[in-house]
Design a protein around this nucleic acid. Structure first.
Length: 589
RNA sequence: GGUUCGGUAGCUCAGCUGGAUAGAGCGUCAUCCUUCUAAGAUGAGGGCCAUUGGUUCGAAUCCAAUCCGAAUCACCA
């Protein structure tokens, strides 16, 4: 049992015994003691003082005495300051912790493992990935790894938006302007190649509309009448009718895009167990509409369109089938949820999707629950805020989109520059160097995007490059490399003997011991930033430790042994924490 | 207009299941490399925690109202 849980439980037991008050252990507030006071952990007494009608000092004394008696090997001392009961934890307790902690198994597996699906990335096949996709990918990948670390089985999936009018737009533009050019004939990455034609479509569209407006048409009408737009609409119709030539072109252009995505995913480390394509799933959910009508979850209007009334749940009415019998987005998603459930039988399903779709996922979950689909209660929306520029939202039409490939390459280039300037890796081979630059560049980028609470929107300023100092990935990578450098010199065979721990040694042990709780918190809140913040605090603490105390040249052999073990545990914890963020830590940098 | 989310240091963010003097990083200034990696450490400076009221022994944290910003309320996905 971890120490804080133990203290809470003991406090609850003691209170019951002393005063016959029945409290849940979680109702007892146990905090780390503020550094300016003596002790390690603090119980706030005010909560019970009132119902007991005693003074805080009296309660503190009685509770402190009882708890010390109950945990004689753990609590060595206590004091009371203004309603705060401070406990000092025994040296031996922490020494035992340091001795027994297993660097290879830092997080105990959950007792109730589940099968959890994480859907993330969801690219469109008409343009390359951008900064927003990076946040999505890193979040999805990370939350999957956090759940895995807890012992859950995780299925990573991706839904590709590969059909619709926007895809037809790049297809039309390619027909009109490409002259048969391909990614290989132009030496362009496939997704960028297709993206360029999407831009070309928009330019041509805009020009045509401007011409029509100049000829006296209203803007609105011109947008509908533009021939290039009509061509795209026609193409969508042909696609839906299964026209062979259209499907050929569609497949061909999509395959270019997938080749490009493949490169990017490989570089940033995204992987999926199963990829769903909207072209296969967009007709799903039709039977569910029938089922919903039978169950009277849905109802039909006079025009024969089908709706669900969610006004009782504080939401609006929502259409689930058009009057022409076709599905809408919501219907597809219900159908896809059912399909995923059938194929993988998952207990829970996490959707990593931007916060603009909060309403959609609220409705999705509600409808699935009302239809009594299995695991409907296990639907979670990991909603994240947009990445914005100092000038506001990124807009592809205005060319203010930060391209994923460009950004990743820029980060790697910067890490190369900085590493060369420091000149600490002269013994590396060319391959090792390029791997190191990747590790550091991507580490900086991933950490930058993951260190912020996902649900908050964040601002990225392309003018200021992402930092490599302070609260950053490279800082933590550096701390890891630093520890490894020491351990290469000292060796890692340790024998811990009786020993007094110095404050910094103890502090480090305490910080290390909270890692499993941090992973839990991150998993419960679907929030990798908790792990990022923890890794930073641990690295910072180690660096203070490093500046104050020598490991290799410790005052005594017993001290040296303890510090080597602390080094091993810190390095392992940093490595593990960073690994669930998708960030590798180098041995040397 | 309804709903949801946000407003904390010059900037980017923690803290929000109420607790002791509100924390980091960047930036600014100062100090520390003949001793384990200075991508580091130490210190200084910087705050009406949007505003106003309420609950409480105690409020950045909970409640209410107001102001500002964003998203959404599509038979687009």
């Amino acid at each position: 049992m971890n120490l804080i849980t133990n203290l809470k439980q003991t406090a609850a037991d003691s209170l019951l015994h002393l005063y016959q008050v029945n409290l849940q252990p979680d109702q007892v507030l146990v905090n780390a003691t503020k550094p300016e006071f003596e002790g390690d952990y603090t119980i706030v007494l005010f909560a019970f003082v009132k119902q007991l009608g005693k003074s805080p000092d009296a309660v503190g004394n009685e509770l402190g005495t009882a708890m010390q008696k109950a945990l004689p090997s753990i609590i060595t001392n206590f004091n009371i300051v203004k309603g705060f009961l401070n406990f000092t934890i025994s040296n031996d307790y922490w020494l035992e912790y340091i001795k027994n902690a297993d660097a290879k198994n830092l997080v105990p597996p959950t007792t109730i493992p589940q099968k959890i699906m994480v859907e993330y990335s969801s690219p469109n096949t008409n343009k390359p990935l951008h900064l927003g996709h990076l946040r999505n990918n890193f979040l999805g990948w990370s939350i999957a790894e956090i759940l895995k670390l807890q012992g859950h089985e995780v299925v990573k999936t991706c839904i590709v938006n590969d059909r619709g009018i926007h895809i037809c737009k790049s297809m039309i533009a390619w027909q009109l302007f490409a002259n048969g050019a391909t990614p290989s004939s132009t030496h362009k990455k496939g997704d960028h190649f297709v993206g360029d034609y999407y831009v070309k479509y928009n330019d041509a569209f805009k020009a045509e509309v401007a011409g029509l407006v100049a000829g006296g048409m209203t803007q609105e009408l011109a947008e509908k009448e533009a021939s290039i737009f009509k061509a795209a609409q026609e193409m969508l119709l042909k696609w839906e009718q299964g026209d062979a030539a259209t499907l050929d072109l569609w497949k061909r252009m999509n395959s270019w895009v997938y080749e490009g995505f493949e490169v990017t995913y490989k570089k940033i480390g995204s992987d999926f167990v199963k990829t769903y394509y909207e072209s296969n799933t967009y007709l799903l959910g039709k039977e569910l509409v029938e089922e919903g009508l039978t169950k009277k979850v849905f109802y039909q209007k006079e025009d024969s369109s089908v709706w669900i009334d969610l006004t009782g749940d504080g939401l609006d009415e929502k259409i689930v089938r058009r009057k022409d019998g076709t599905s809408v987005y919501m219907t597809q998603d219900i159908g896809l949820a059912q399909l995923k459930q059938k194929e993988f039988n998952n207990d829970a399903s996490i959707y990593v999707v931007g916060d603009e779709q909060n309403y959609h996922f609220k409705v999705l979950k509600l409808i699935c629950q009302k239809l009594q689909l299995p695991a409907a209660d296990g639907i979670y929306h990991l909603s994240y805020g947009m990445v914005e520029l100092p000038t506001g939202k990124m807009k592809s039409r205005e060319g203010t989109v930060v391209d994923a490939d460009d950004l990743v390459d820029a980060m790697i280039a910067i890490s190369k520059e900085k590493t060369e300037a420091l000149g600490k890796v002269s013994d590396f081979t060319a391959d090792q160097l390029s791997e190191l630059y990747n590790t550091i560049g991507l580490g900086a980028l991933k950490f930058f995007l993951l260190r912020v609470d996902p649900k908050k929107k964040m601002i990225f300023n392309p003018e200021e490059s992402i930092d490599f100092h302070g609260f950053t990935g490279p800082f933590i990578q550096y701390t890891h490399a630093r520890i490894k450098s020491i351990l290469r010199k000292t060796g890692i065979d340790v024998a811990i003997t009786n020993n007094e721990l110095l404050p910094l040694e103890k502090q480090l042990a305490i910080e290390l011991s909270t890692f499993p709780a941090i992973i839990n918190e991150a998993a419960e809140n679907l929030d990798p930033s908790k792990v990022a913040i923890y890794a930073f605090n641990l690295a910072k603490l180690f660096n203070t430790f490093y500046a104050e105390l020598s490991i290799a040249n410790a005052e005594s052999e017993t001290k040296k042994q303890v510090r080597i073990q602390l080094g091993i545990l810190t390095a392992a914890t940093l490595q593990k924490a960073m690994s669930v963020l998708g960030i590798a830590v180098p041995e040397q940098m």
